[in-house]
Design a protein around this nucleic acid. Structure first.
Lengths: 212, 212, 212, 212
DNA sequence: CATGAATGAGGATTCATTCAT
DNA sequence: AATGAATGAATCCTCATTCAT
């Protein structure tokens, strides 16, 4: 029956709207200072309803994270473009650009990702949710690993360990993003985020290239 | 009078012991979960005394930060070794190693530095304290900038913008540290922190080198 | 029409299954900690349905009680055995044994009966339901009163007031049951429940007997 | 210094006033319905202060209980009158009367004692507090046991097991108190509490007496 | 200076009950 | 009749901060 389908859709919509509200509130206030009350108010539902859809405040964060990671993974896969025929360095550039784009479009996710450290996230979220976050994170990195592997195989890159090389690029990009995420640090560096990001990415890629 | 001097010294000692207690507690519990009570207890003073020496919990964090930054700046200056005659790439390697050493020896400072983002730090700390943190951070980075400048001048490095290059290295190093700071992420990457740090640092430095 | 009859039967069955679920849940969790949600879940109906059959959580308790009391009254009547020719002391022994048996078989009812004290039971249950519980309780006691009356008439017992004597036995039995219902108190007394119950019952009956 | 002593006294007074408030509120509302807010309000302190003196709502109950038990034990000891020369049956009568008197003077304690069953009391109170309650309860009963022992030794009573006999009397008295504690049940029995209590007590004592 | 008792504004979470479908 | 989503008041407890001594 269509009634049931509509119900389901309504439910999903409600869930999404709560998630969106949580995102906004967490972003504005920070996770700790944010209150479930504000989330409920923002979503225009009662506090009880929030708990109807999510077990706890931390679960809300986890769901937000997962959603973001899924989108990111998709973006990275599209950037890698398995079906296309790209050179390894080109792939890294594309992945790097896609990562930047993602955080440019949805700057909050970066914060949420970083917020995982704190608050005994691991203890307060259902274990399977934690595992999912872990799995998703790994999956994101795996595209970078693949590209580096291709480069090593083709002789374009020279490096001792593929994981290490991929992690270096990843760490660099994250480092730039974090550096630029904070107004204080952005002021210190006094360089345009996009420019620094691009230059850092290029620097690492150049570092990987085999010298002719 | 020596009475006065002793008084002063006593006061300083008290302040330091509170700071040390705060450091331990913030590290163990995280800033938000930590309570002023625990800090007071750890420092073996009353809660009121903590407020006698520090305006607020956040001020405590700022003081901790500043202390750490001072130590870091000293370490970086020593690594740069203005009086010595080092090549630019060597200087970068030394700075990079010193940075790693610092966070290896005092892993909490990294956390505190990162914690500055959150919690409306800016709003809840006296403006001059905030300025001081900013100044200190800049000072740290300036040693890296200096080394890059030397490299460009000597023709060892080739890069369009000195600040950019320095920030790239800085961002990379921070990125690795952050990546490795979180157990979850450390698991994902599956590389030894020290190894990744060294390799990332080398990769960036190589990326800066002028091709022969 | 038979359709109507079936409907009626269905309804009764539903009601019974909710009641059974409530009994189980109240027993396991205690009345206050139990949630209507768990009752509904256990009964495999929706929460709304529970409220369709019962006005409130407290009404559920009252219905449970009434059900239990009805069963108890039947058991007591059977023990008294009006059609048989028993001596008064024998009747008291039989009633006492039946009471014990009842709470042995259905230990929860004792708890429910005791729970009536608390929670403004009187205020939150429909007055007629309260009256019914009262009536049922009286009816149970009346069998004891009858037996004592018989004993006094036959000269076996000597006592000033029949109600008093019956209430004494009743109070004693309840006292033992309550004493033994709580693990803490059971530990304190360090006597087997059945043994204490029997001995207490005998002691009171002996106390009623006219000295020869 | 007297300052310190006064402080200590003030603290004790505060603690007592909170305890008294809790007693009143728990009595009026029942433990579950009572809120810590009301206790605080009644004691004319802030909610935080209540938690300064007591760890939790349940701890408040335990403290109340313990206080009551201590008073009861004292009353029982006085009734037993170790220094005096009483016959065993007289001692039981005195103990029984003291018990009644106690609950007549402080009717709430009976309720609190009974409330221990519920609410996972054991789990939510510090283990040592639980042990104390247990110990105190045992101590109360021990006076009855002593009196029965004396009776058996002197040949006044005849019974197989001293503990059993003591528990029977205890159970009976508790049973009467409980029976009379509840308005509903009091109505059913239709006998004056004091009268029933006395008669029940006499009945059990008579049941213990060796027949001449 | 130092203390530590007192405060009270929140905060996360629960759950009986209602009501539109 | 049955559902189950939505509600929101109510609850226990925490903790940064103040202030009288």
């Amino acid at each position: 029956m269509s009634t049931r389908a509509r119900r389901e859709r309504e439910k999903q919509r409600r869930r999404d709207s709560i998630l969106a509200a949580a995102q906004a509130v967490f972003l504005e206030e920070g996770f700790y200072r944010a209150t479930v009350d504000s989330v409920a108010e923002r979503a225009e539902v009662s506090k009880g309803t929030v708990y109807l859809y999510f077990d706890s405040k931390e679960t809300l964060l986890a769901a937000l994270l997962l959603e973001g990671l899924d989108a990111l993974i998709e973006a990275l896969e599209a950037a890698y473009a398995p079906a296309q025929d790209y050179a390894a360095d080109e792939r890294l550039r594309r992945l790097s650009a896609a990562y930047f784009q993602f955080f440019h479009d949805e700057p909050h996710y970066f914060r949420f990702l970083m917020a995982m450290d704190r608050g005994r996230f691991r203890d307060s979220v259902a274990p399977d949710m934690y595992q999912e976050v872990l799995k998703a994170s790994l999956e994101g990195l795996s595209w970078v690993v693949k590209a580096v592997e291709q480069g090593v195989t083709s002789g374009l890159f020279v490096c001792c360990d593929v994981n290490q090389a991929a992690a270096t690029l990843w760490a660099t990009l994250n480092g730039v993003l974090e550096l630029m995420a904070h107004p204080l640090r952005r002021d210190i560096v006094a360089v345009e985020p996009a420019v620094l990001y691009y230059s850092a990415s290029e620097t690492v890629i150049r570092g990987l290239l085999a010298r002719s």
